[in-house]
């Protein structure tokens, strides 16, 4: 026995000793972010040394990044959710109507989060109990909630400007100095989701359910419960992001959320979470989201038209994906243990 289990030579490489090697992918994503920042800084040094540029960026970035963070869990499960923009609007509508009826209290936020939880529950049940593929199920709920919102509002926006300055308003989207509070919420949510994913049993089950559902089931993990819980968490977080976006704009718009669909999904993908599931990181998504936001801010700051934004987004997504494939390939070649 002893002879046969001699350390394969690949294992003698310091691969697992260096933190840089272990987090290669995350470092690559961070490098892309820093490189882009340097490029924009070089083109427009005054714009990018002005703190208000970052205030502007961080006041809107959360609406893409927050739903992307919980979407990372969904994608790690090997599933998808197209309904979260509608759930963002649903949460925002529930808050708006509650505030208009009962005044601006935490009740509105509580009901908004509950609406998100219920919307997530519906997605989870459709996917697990009825075994409808998540792509199809969430197209259904995407239309369902958006339709519900349009019927209720008749397509009209609802102004919320009168609540500006109230403590609850400031607590959600106020400013601490020049720092938008919503970016602090984003960091808090990212930290909580990161801790759960890496250090909690639930996070481990999310990974296993996405990586090998049959194995997870065989080993006694209730994968349906995991999937439903993830969709519920994602629903509540999307609703929260919707509330923040609405309060930042001080108006509820029935079309709220639609622009975040592709951006949030792209944040997850750029961040190194493959759609095949089983792996992925919250850190990657956070930086992925920042990359997309930086491109928007940067392109406007360097003075070219906003039409360039999509083009550069596309380019960066493709570059990031190629980089990920290359990193994974080289890892595969390096690590394979052979007899």
């Amino acid at each position: 026995m002893g002879k046969r289990s001699v350390l394969p030579k690949q294992l003698k490489t310091p691969y697992f000793t260096g933190i840089t090697a272990k987090y290669k992918l995350q470092i690559a994503i961070l490098a892309i972010f820093l490189m882009l920042w340097l490029i924009f800084f070089a083109i427009n040094p005054s714009g990018f040394s002005n703190p208000y540029t970052y205030t502007a960026m961080f006041s809107v970035a959360p609406f893409t990044i927050i739903p992307a963070l919980s979407l990372t869990y969904v994608i790690i499960l090997g599933e998808i959710d197209l309904s979260f923009p509608s759930v963002m609007a649903l949460g925002a509508l529930v808050l708006t109507l509650t505030w208009k009826t009962f005044g601006p209290t935490p009740l509105g936020l509580l009901l908004a989060l509950s609406a998100g939880l219920l919307a997530g529950l519906l997605n989870g049940i459709l996917i697990t109990k009825f075994q409808i593929p998540s792509l199809i199920a969430t197209i259904g709920t995407m239309f369902l909630w958006r339709g519900f919102i349009l019927v209720v509002t008749q397509g009209y926006g609802i102004p919320l400007g009168e609540y500006r300055g109230l403590p609850i308003y400031e607590m959600l989207v106020g400013r601490i100095g020049i720092i938008p509070v919503q970016i602090i919420w984003t960091v808090i949510i990212a930290l909580v989701l990161w801790v759960i994913l890496n250090f909690h049993k639930f996070g481990a089950y999310v990974y296993y359910t996405g990586d090998n559902r049959i194995a997870a089931k065989m080993l006694g993990i209730n994968t349906d419960k995991v999937i439903i819980s993830v969709y519920m968490i994602h629903g509540a977080i999307a609703a929260f992001a919707g509330v923040l976006a609405t309060l930042e704009m001080a108006t509820f718009w029935p079309a709220l959320g639609e622009i975040y669909l592709m951006k949030s999904i792209a944040s997850v993908i750029v961040g190194g979470t493959p759609v095949t599931g089983g792996i992925g990181t919250i850190f990657g998504t956070f930086i992925g989201g920042l990359i997309l936001e930086l491109i928007e801010t940067g392109i406007l700051a360097v003075g070219v038209t906003g039409f360039w934004i999509r083009l550069v987004h596309g380019l960066v997504i493709i570059i990031a994906l190629i980089a990920q494939v290359l990193i994974r390939r080289s890892e595969m070649r390096r690590m394979r243990v052979v007899e």
Binding site: H200, K201, Y207, D211, N212, A215, A216, L219, G220, I279
Partner: peptide, 29 residues
Amino acid sequence: HQERTLSENHTIWRNIFMGRELTGPLGFL
């Protein structure tokens, strides 16, 4: 099973304890 009860993308220790993780208070690993 032939490779079927493993979560391939994860570490050996995670696989060994898969489904029966040792946890502390609040379910932390």
